[in-house]
């Protein structure tokens, strides 16, 4: 196996709810607040739409970190969706930690439509953590690709 000389470019999947955090990301954009390009957003109607399977799938397909962002507690567009997400993800994250995907690779945060600055900060900090952890190797054996490290 050849030594990886490329600087580590992580892959981070961000599930953002349509009403708050996706709008927060838009505000970060309109305010030109930079965060790393490795953060890529998938829009969902609500943080409670994120099925734990989506998170598992992301890690299985080589993601180095997964973040889910929703409305602040009490501010959910659907009243209680973010509470469901909080409960589910807490369980999921500790299970993943048990399976060897460090707790720092998963994150749930609340970012409102007005918090462009917070969006950029959260993504910058999260990416920093992932950089510190390095490549995620867990679940690689479950990958469907033939060549994982080229």
């Amino acid at each position: 196996m050849s030594v990886d000389k490329q600087p580590f470019k992580p892959l981070i999947a961000a599930f953002c709810c349509n009403w708050c955090s996706y709008a927060g990301a838009d505000l970060a954009g309109t305010s030109r607040l930079a965060y790393p390009a490795e953060v890529k957003i998938i829009r969902v109607p609500c943080s409670c739409r994120v099925n734990p399977l989506f998170v598992l799938r992301a890690f299985q397909r080589g993601a180095d970190g997964v973040i889910i962002a929703g409305c602040h507690p009490g501010d959910c567009h659907y009243t209680t969706g973010n509470y469901y997400a909080r409960r589910r993800m807490t369980l999921l994250f500790s299970m993943l930690d048990y399976l060897g995907i460090e707790k720092e690779r998963t994150k749930l945060d609340w970012i409102s439509a007005a918090e462009g600055v917070k969006f950029a900060t959260v993504m910058n900090d999260f990416s920093k953590e992932i950089h510190a952890l390095g490549r995620n190797t867990r679940f690689g054996d479950l990958r469907c690709t033939t060549a994982v490290a080229q």
């Binding site: 892959l11 890529k40 998938i42 109607p45 399977l53 799938r57 397909r61 993601a63």
Partner: peptide, 19 residues
Amino acid sequence: DLRGFSNSQIMAEVDALCR
């Protein structure tokens, strides 16, 4: 399932994003 944001659609997005 949720129309417009179905399980298979989001899975496909995850796959494409991580490809």
